[in-house]
Design a protein around this nucleic acid. Sequence first.
DNA 1: AGACTCCTTTCGCTCAGTGAAAGGGTTCGC
DNA 2: GCGAACCCTTTCACTGAGCGAAAGGAGTCT
Lengths: 251, 251
Amino acid sequence: MAGNTSVPGASVVSRSLALLFAFDDQHRRLTLSELARRADLPLPTAYRLVGELVAGGALVRRGSGEYVVARRLWQVGLLAPVETGLREVAAPFLNDIHAATRATVHLAVRERTEVLYLERLSGRASVPVVSTVGSRLPLHATGVGKVLLAHAPDDVVEAALAQLGRVTPYTVTQPARMREQLDRIRRDGYATTVEEMTLGACSVAVPIRAGGAEGRVVAAVGIVVPSLKRDRPRLVAALQVAAQGIGRSLG
Amino acid sequence: MAGNTSVPGASVVSRSLALLFAFDDQHRRLTLSELARRADLPLPTAYRLVGELVAGGALVRRGSGEYVVARRLWQVGLLAPVETGLREVAAPFLNDIHAATRATVHLAVRERTEVLYLERLSGRASVPVVSTVGSRLPLHATGVGKVLLAHAPDDVVEAALAQLGRVTPYTVTQPARMREQLDRIRRDGYATTVEEMTLGACSVAVPIRAGGAEGRVVAAVGIVVPSLKRDRPRLVAALQVAAQGIGRSLG
DNA sequence: AGACTCCTTTCGCTCAGTGAAAGGGTTCGC
DNA sequence: GCGAACCCTTTCACTGAGCGAAAGGAGTCT
C-alpha cells in the first residue's frame, strides 16, 4: 500500500480478501468493527476498503449497518469447480435417501482434517443441524467425518486424533476410543454418532467408493436423525444402496 | 493506485473485483490474457493482481495455466442471503415436482429484466438445459421468465419488450406477439416456451404467489421437457400444486 | 454526565502499485 | 526452418493511491 502502513507486506488485495473471508458460517452478518477486528485491520482502513467492496458489488450493507455477502459474489462463487462431477452424480441418489428416510441428508468430502459439506437436503423432523453447504466441521464429531477419517491416510488420522476437541459432553475425545471406532467403522461399513456434535442429533454415514465395491473412498453420505434406537439397519441399508449407486456412476 | 496509472480513479479493489467478476457461466476457466481483457487491465497489472488473488485463496491456477474460482470463494459466496427463505421453503416442493415429472426443475426470481435461477434439479431425459444455479437469462425466452414478466411492473415490461433478442429461430421477438402471450399467461396461469431458448427444449412454468391464492408474484417454478405435445395438462397441474404449496408456506 | 460502544471524516506522509518496454516460451502456417 | 502470433513473465523508475493516528459525531448504557 502506501505511506504509513503498520504491517508492510500486506497488499490491498490481501486486505480486501481478509475482509471477504471474515465471513463464515457463524458470521454471515458483520458490522464494520467486527470486520475490522476479524480481518485485523485498523478501523479507518476497513471503512475505506469495505466501502469499495460495497461499491464493487462484493458486499451489501444492510439497513441495520451490518454487512453481508452480495448476490454477485454468490454468483461468482457458484462457478467454482467444487467436486462438480460428484455432486451432479450424487444428486438423484441423495433425493432417494431423503425420500426413503425423510431425514436431513449430507454429502461430504474430507479436506485436510475437516469435513467439507457439499450438499444438504433438509429433513422434516425438527432435529438441530449445524452444518450447511460449504461449511466445515471437525472430522471426529460427525457421522460423515468419522467415515472419512476411517479411510484417511495415516498422517491425517494422527493429526485428527491429536485434536479431538470436545463439542458436546458426548464427543469422543480419547484417541484410543476413536481408534476403536475407526476400526469398527471400517469393519461394519458405516459410522454413527450420538449427540457428539449437537445435543439431540444422531447420525449415520457410509463411505462412497469411486467405481463401486472396492474402490477408493472419495466421499461420504450420511443422515441426521433424532434417535438411532428404532431403525438403524434400515437407515444403513438405504445409505449403502445409494452410496453403491453413486460410486458405480462415478466410474 | 500509484504512479503511472492509465485509468486514474480505478482502485486496486475495483480492479481485483473486476478480475473476479470476469468469470461467468460461459467463462468458468480463464487464462491470464482473457482475464486481463475481460477486466480491461494491462497484462502485467492483471498478472500481479491475479497472482495475489491466487495467493489469497480467491482463485486457483489449474495446471493448464487457466484460472478458476477457488473453493474458498465458493464457501464465502454461499453465505450470501439470496432469497434464503424462499429457497428453503421451496426445496421439498421442487423435489415433489421432480418426482412427479422426472424433468429438469427450476426455481427462479426476476432481477431487473432478467431471470435469476435460484435452484435447479436436473432431469433424467437428455434435454439440453443452459441455465445453472446463479445464472441469468433474458425474461422473454424462458418459461419462468415469461411468467415473471407477465406479472412484472409496466416499466419492466416495456424495458423487456424493447430488447427481445433472438436466441433461436423460434424466439418470440415481436413485442405485439409477446404482449398477447403475457395476456394469455395471466389468464391461463401458466407459461410455455417451445425451443425459444434452446433447440430441443420446451418448458412450462407457473407463478408463485406469496401467501397463496391472490398474493403478489414473487417467484416462478418451471420445468424443461423435450416436448409439450403429450401431457401439458398433467405438467401444469403438478407445477400449480407445488406453487400453491410454496406460496402458502411463505405466509 | 461520564464512559462506553459504534461509525465517519480529515490530512500529510510515502511506498505500494503501476504499466511501457523488453525478454522468453509456445505453437502455428508455409 | 523461419518468421508471425500468440501466450506468460520480469524489470524498473515514477508518483498518487493508500494509509492510519487523531479527532469528531452519534448512539446506548450505567
